[in-house]
Amino acid sequence: MKVAIVFDSAGTLLYTYRVAMDVRSRKMKTGVESTMLTCSKEGRSLILLYAHSLNIFETPSDTLLSDYMKKEGIKFGIACSNGIVTHEEVSEYLLNDEFARISDLQVCIKKVWNCCKKLPIVAMNSGVIVNRNLKGIEFTITSGGRPFSNAKEAVSDLHKMGVATYVASGDRTDKLVRMADYLGIAHDNIHGVATPSIKAQVIKDLKCEYDTVIMVGDGVNDIPALREADISVLTCQQNKNKPNKLIEAADIIINDVSEIKNIAENAINGRDFKKN
């Protein structure tokens, strides 16, 4: 029985610390879960900016984020949305926003870096939350993650069992590759800049190659992939407060990444699993 497991990154393989800045009130939110913040109000979309932190810090702090994106040609990806939104619509909000400044992103990056800089492996990403009702940027947001203490051992155990491991995440590929090197996951098995629909397509493609494909995720942006997988696993290792629609999409709920070993073993041996 050929088995493959696809992991999300943040909250699944990585313990992730996030901060968000409300660009209108200038109030900072710490310890937020970006997908939950996005889905808590209709019209919000979580956008990952493909920009390097150093380049952001080299930009004058009073520069409008929209002007910075236009000047530097910054690309972006839609991680998840509360409601249907098009790439063109998001682009209009990003490039015409008159509230968010580079300083709003700089303070988020600095806050996360001060918490994570001493860790041996750190994957940092920055983005924004746009709001259709505001027709612009509502929050700037930065996340920094380090692998869960038992993630490397869990991946190693899976490989010893002959289980193939993959990562499908909205994070930038270069950030994921560094994490993959630490965990022992092949570069060819990394799918970065993966939207919810791309994650689901990764699962669909792997089902043509493997007898059983397991998806492990922790956020609402993983729901399409969870539904596509042969076995869907929701991990609550970082945050146990999950929305009902996410819980309903999962066959199995775990509280520690090491539990995936038993799930894979059952799949290899063709044993039925008990749905939560």
Rank of each mutant, 00 (worst) to 15 (best):
D222R: 00
S258M: 10
K152P: 02
Y17R: 03
P243K: 07
K204V: 10
M124H: 02
K240G: 05
A168H: 04
L14E: 05
D230R: 04
Q237H: 08
A51T: 14
L134T: 02
N276S: 11
K240Y: 05
R24F: 11
P196Y: 13
S126D: 09
R24K: 11
V32R: 00
T63R: 02
G11K: 00
D174S: 14
E259L: 08
D251M: 11
K75H: 11
S103F: 07
P147K: 10
Q237N: 07
N241T: 10
I185L: 12
P224R: 07
I260L: 08
T16G: 07
S66W: 06
V167C: 05
L46S: 01
G83S: 03
D218H: 06
L206T: 06
L206K: 04
E42D: 07
E259S: 14
E72T: 08
K160Y: 06
C236H: 01
T86Y: 04
P243V: 08
G219L: 03
C39W: 14
K199H: 13
N189R: 14
K274I: 12
I252M: 07
E209G: 00
H191I: 15
I252V: 13
A164T: 10
K41A: 12
R132C: 02
I47F: 09
N266S: 12
I5H: 12
R172H: 12
G170S: 09
K204H: 11
L13S: 12
I121T: 10
D174P: 01
I198R: 15
S126H: 07
L183G: 13
S9L: 14
S66V: 04
A151V: 11
V216C: 14
D272V: 06
D256F: 12
Y93G: 02
S40H: 04
I231F: 10
H159W: 00
I141T: 02
S103M: 07
K2T: 15
G77C: 04
D8C: 09
R18N: 06
S45M: 03
Y210M: 03
Q238W: 02
D174R: 08
K29H: 14
D205T: 12
G127F: 03
L37G: 01
K207P: 01
V257S: 05
K71D: 13
D211Y: 05
L95N: 09
T30C: 03
T63K: 07
P147C: 07
